[in-house]
Structure formats: C-alpha cells, structure tokens
Write a protein that binds this DNA or RNA. Sequence first.
DNA 1: CGTTCTTATACATAAGTTATACAACTATTA
DNA 2: TAATAGTTGTATAACTTATGTATAAGAACG
Lengths: 305, 305
Amino acid sequence: MKNRSLYPIKTVSEKTGLSTFIIRAWENRYKAISPSRTDSNRRLYCEKDIQRLQYLHEAIKQGHTISSIAGLTTVQLQELLQINSVSAEAGFQDMSSLTEFLNGCLEAVENLDNQKLESELLSASVSAPQQVVLDKLIIPLMIKIGDYWKSGRFRVTHEHLATQVVKNYLMNVVNSYRQIENAPVLVVSTPNGQKHEIGALLGAVVGASEGWKPVYLGPDLPAEEIAFAAQKLNAKAIMLNVVYPEDDPRLIEEVRKIIKCDSVNAGVILTGKGINFYSDKFTEAGAFLVNTPAELRTTLENIRK
Amino acid sequence: MKNRSLYPIKTVSEKTGLSTFIIRAWENRYKAISPSRTDSNRRLYCEKDIQRLQYLHEAIKQGHTISSIAGLTTVQLQELLQINSVSAEAGFQDMSSLTEFLNGCLEAVENLDNQKLESELLSASVSAPQQVVLDKLIIPLMIKIGDYWKSGRFRVTHEHLATQVVKNYLMNVVNSYRQIENAPVLVVSTPNGQKHEIGALLGAVVGASEGWKPVYLGPDLPAEEIAFAAQKLNAKAIMLNVVYPEDDPRLIEEVRKIIKCDSVNAGVILTGKGINFYSDKFTEAGAFLVNTPAELRTTLENIRK
DNA sequence: CGTTCTTATACATAAGTTATACAACTATTA
DNA sequence: TAATAGTTGTATAACTTATGTATAAGAACG
C-alpha cells in the first residue's frame, strides 16, 4: 500500500525541470505544494507531489500565473489542462483541428522532437476517428515532409526521424486491431528496391480495420521471399506498396514473379504513387491497382469472397 | 541448508561497484545491510546481501537518497524499482523461463507469425526485468535468427519480419521511459551503409534507462545529417551502431567527420560487433568504443559529467 | 610479513534549510 | 502617462545535514 518512494528536492528538480528555488518559492509564497519532511527538516516529495508540480509547470507554460493556480487541487489542475486541449479541438471540428495537429507535427519534425511528434499523433488519434487521422494527418504529414525536403526546408534527417515515429505509430495501430481468429492473412511488403514503408503500413492498417490479419514483412524484399511468406501463411492477399515510378523494369518482373508463382494463391494488390507509371503492365499481369484507402477496402472485400 | 557461498567485502565491492568504504558506511550509519560475521569478526555477504546492495545502488541512481531507502526491506526495494518479484525470487529459474520464451519466439518467427512473436515478447517483458529481457531474450533471439539464416534454416523473410516486430517493441520500450525534463540528448543512428537497426535501438533503451533522452534518427545516415541533428538538438552524446566490419574505409571517414565537426559538442560512442575491426582508428579519432550494455552505461555516465 | 579487514575518527564536498535581496515584469493608480 | 505597488523568477548569505572518502591503529589471514 504505502509505496514509500520519496525523493529529495534535487531529484524532483531534475524530474520536473523546475529549479529548486522555484519549488521552494512556490511552497513558501503560494503554498502550492506541501511535501513531507525528514526528521532533519528536509523536504521529501512523493510521486503525487511530483505530478502536481508537473501539472503546475504545464499550466504555466500554457499562460496561467502561479498565483492563480497554486490553490487548485491536483484534480482541478488536471481538468484545467484537459479543458484546454479539449477546447482546442471542440472549437473547430475535424478538419481545422487536424490542421492544428498537422502544424504541431511539422513543428515537432522541424525541431527533431520525436517525443512531441509522437504525442501529437497520439492526441490526434483520440480526438478523431482512425480513418480521419490517417487521411487528414498522417498522409498529409508525410507529403508535406516530402515537399519540404524537395524545397530544401527539411533535410534527410527530418524525413528519417518522422518516418521512424510514424512507422512505430502505425504498427501499434495495426496491433491494436488483433483479435479475430481465422482472419484471412494479408501479406504486406514493398518490392525489391522500394524502401519507403509508410504506404505499406497504411495499407496494413486498412487491412486490419477490415478484419484481415496483416503480416508486415518489412520493406525491400525480393519476389521469392514475398512469395514464400504468402505460401507459408496461406495468404489470401498480398499488398505491395510502390513509391518510385522511376523506370525500373525489374519492378514489373518482380511483381509478375509473385503472381505467376503457382504455390501462391493470393490476390496481389499494388498501392502507392509509383504504380500508375506501369499501370497497364501490372493489370495485364493480373494485379489489382489501388489508389485510395476506399478502393483498397472494396478490393479487399472482393478478394475475400 | 543451502550451499550458500559467502563473500568478503572486497569481492562484494567488485561485484557491486560500490567502494568498501561505502558498504561499511551504509551498514554503520543506516543499518542498510547486516552481513554475517566470521568468528574473527570479518564481514561475510551472501548472494541476497549482494543483490540488496545492487538494488540500493540502483535506487540511488534513480534519485533516492540512501537515508530514505536504507530501512526498506529487500522486497520493498524491488517494488520501488518495479522489478517483478516473481522472477526475482525465481532466481535461477530466470534463465530457463526465458529460454522458453526464446523458443516461443523462434517458433513464431519460423511460422512468420508476427502476432505470436509480439505476444511472446510482451509476456517476457512482464515476467522478467527489462535488462534481463534484453540480454537473455532479444539479443540471443536476433543472434539465433542470424545463425539460422546463415545455415539456411531461415530465409530473409524470417529475419525481416522479426526485425520489424522487435524494432517496434524496442521503440515502445524507449518511449515508456520518458519523464525527465531537460534530460541530456542522445542522438542514435547508424552510419551510412549500415542498415541494421536493432543494435542502435538497444542502445537507445539503455540510454533511456540511464535518464537520457534518446532521439532515434533511423539507420543509414550520412555523417552530415547526424552532425546536423546533434547540433540542432544540442546533443551530449551520439551513439552509432556498426554491424558489418567488412572493409569499408568510408566508415572511418564518416565517423571522423562527425567527431571533427566543430558545431557538434557531443561524445561519439560506437557500438556493435563491427567496431572492433577498426578499433584503433576509431579510438584515435576520439570515439568511445563500447562492447556491452554495462560499458555503455558507464560511458554515458562519464560523458554526462 | 605483507595484505586485508576491523573500528573509530576526521574531513570535504555536496546538498539542504531559512531569510533576505534583487531585477524584470505586470497591473494599478494618480 | 508616469509613478507605484505587486508578482515572480533568481541569487546570495549563513548555517546545518548528508554522504562519500580518507586516515590511524590494531587484529586476522595466508
């Protein structure tokens, strides 16, 4: 019961980012906090005290003054911080609020602040439906980052860091769906030479939301490997994301290999901007070309039958 | 009863990293520990005593003071450190139980069952302390997969799929640490040409557990990009993981570029199997070479000062 | 006999305490 | 608008406590 984890003021200072001066001043001047004391009169802070200080810190960052919030209970502080973030969303509905998140994400990327980027994504995902977050935040975000990169405003580093965080976010989204027994398997990957993963993961999310069991193999795999996985898992569909339309005749060959593989009994779906360059050859070979999440949904539904 | 081995204070000092002065002072001043004695009054420490000292040491690193924790029972210390008591009591069973998990993971990989692989990792991580999961499960797992691949038992697909899941798991572990404000920044990446990410992420976990703020940029980045990020984030350390020792003189050049960059004011730490191939040149250039998680911890601690 | 351990004492530094002061703002008042 | 008063973060002084480290003198070990 008594989780006696008590910390001295220095540790609290390090954990909250508040100077020891401030912490003492807030106690003396505003009774903002009342730590217990050792026999020798030293302050001892428990976890709750630390959390309260973090709330106070956060509220001040949001523009409140210490004198106006010092008297609030910790619960009231929580509400104060909640109300602020909710009201930001409540005021403007879906569209504009996600624009806010988008700007927040871009700012986080610019500052290479993966922590903030992640928290923006998470708060967005509780304030809007999954599909909206994908369409109106994740996809625009990655496009914007690409644009900024081309225009020289962002560097490779920015794109790299964002990719890591978004990938992780998307994988967690996919995992959050897992429950259905005997769901049809959807093998997800990108063909040899295609290193961008976000599109593939977006497809995996759609698949999961449609009741499939996505198995993400990672990017940049040879046809034989993808075919092997599809066979081993007895997959009903294979989804491949293609970003670069550059003239790579091997790409067609790779896709064709998978489709022609006798042991593979799965529909092959191609997604991504890169697919339209060769669209004829792909459809000819028997692949499904898909440009939007909505199309992907219906295609998956059709294959499932 | 138990064939308990008893150790003199010097051995205990070496095992725990605490000076003999400290160990005696903690006993005399705070009754933090009560070793048995020989007939001639010399201190004798059993395994449990050593473990207790290690817990105390760990708790102090986390910001507690010796006076406030010396009176806790060993179980309370475990709770304080959030160490699962089941596994701690199990003691030697640790090994075999993680072997179970390891086999489960390998089976999951063999069947390309990412879902099962993930759930194995998650169950392991609640039944053993983080560090043990990393040392005894994650690392051996990736090694085994590499071995199986070389021997032809696994294919690229297996390795790819496992990498995705493990990566995701490790990123979530890193994220679970975040609390300290103004923590020193640790930029984590792999140099140009190095595509394996697991080692880098393992380093990020260690960094996070030591109170740093790891910023993972993703793999395969040119020196300029890494230097840019380090500068922008005012990083205190840069950690680069190198797997392939193959003769790539550009690698040394890349690392040297980062170290020599004037605007970067960070210690450069190299990890991974690949580093020993060129160890002389790297140390010459001013990098810290690190081979084990323990070494990484102490190196980070030194740089932080 | 040199090494390691013991207790007791001493010391240095880090870190904590209160009280007071101060500078930079903000808000109020004349 | 300028003067004034309050707010708030930061700094210093003087002192105490906490904690790591060192020394001295003797005892035990191998």
